[in-house]
Design a protein around this nucleic acid. Structure first.
Lengths: 148, 148
DNA sequence: GTTATAAATTATAACTATTTTAATTTAAGA
DNA sequence: TCTTAAATTAAAATAGTTATAATTTATAAC
């Protein structure tokens, strides 16, 4: 399954004239298998073993290329760093306000919100984002103090 | 109406032991009357006339104080700068992906999303955010090229 | 009105995340 | 194998935000 996703993603890149370098392949694979929505620095550090000379600029450059190709979504949730998510399917996120963990959350699309937004504001709606904040079971269990 | 809001906000601040300086008052007033969801730099520049010696650090410090007091919400939408919104009532935002304009959008709360998120993920939901992206009437009219 | 004092402001240095740059390497087409 | 434009690399630069030390000031107390 992972292999198929990588192949599809690589085809998408090739079709838009992007070369497939080992670094590019490794970053993409990391994002596909990752459930943790990593930051650029997470990715950079995770690949240090396999690519000791990889530059953090390479990571950022590739994330921008993947984002532009529609393969990856950048999550900007007020953390100090952006996080990145392989765009496998439409879903939302649930974020723990204590430990920061992010989990995927499939919910029937809120398309009617876009429709009403168009009606009320005169905008042509294209897409929306939504995320739920709360406390994960682990943090609740360990009685961790909320950030806020 | 604006005067009342300022008074209420100032009372909130006084109750939490925060002093009311002219700078603090001016930043608060700017946010209450602003419909534009300004950045810290927008605020800093807008008040340059009245407060030529105001420091950008003062703006940031005060925004943090207002945020902590619950008077202001920080909008982190992937722009390179945070934007700030006086938290007058619960609402969502519609953002133009061409020119960046943000408008308020009142929609019945999506509380059932939080309920389902709790059910599906085991989190204790606290709150959520949602924003709709699209093209504003002005940009549609002038045929502006989309950012993406 | 004066005094005391801790909060706030100020100017600027520092920090962090991300982007840019110039030199070098390399993917992939011919 | 050769060519060349894309990509990587290392490090500088940028922009947004925070921290710092010196100074100012809001406000409580008198």
């Amino acid at each position: 399954m992972t292999e198929e996703r990588i192949k599809e993603a690589i085809n998408t890149l090739k079709e838009s004239g992007v070369r497939i370098t080992p670094q590019r392949h490794a970053i993409l694979e990391f994002l596909i298998v990752s459930m943790a929505h990593p930051t650029a620095d997470d990715i950079y550090k995770a690949l240090e073993g396999k690519f000791p000379n990889m530059s953090v600029a390479t990571v950022y450059n590739n994330l921008r290329v993947f984002k532009k190709a529609g393969l990856v979504k950048e999550l900007t949730y007020g953390d100090s760093s952006s996080r990145f998510d392989f765009a496998s399917s439409d879903h939302y996120h649930v974020i723990c306000s204590s430990c920061g963990k992010i989990v995927d959350f499939h919910y029937p699309g809120l398309d009617e919100v876009e429709a009403l937004a168009e009606h009320v504001t005169g905008f042509s709606a294209q897409n929306h984002r939504m995320e739920v904040y709360g406390v994960c079971p682990d943090c609740r269990e360990h009685g961790k103090i909320l950030k806020s």
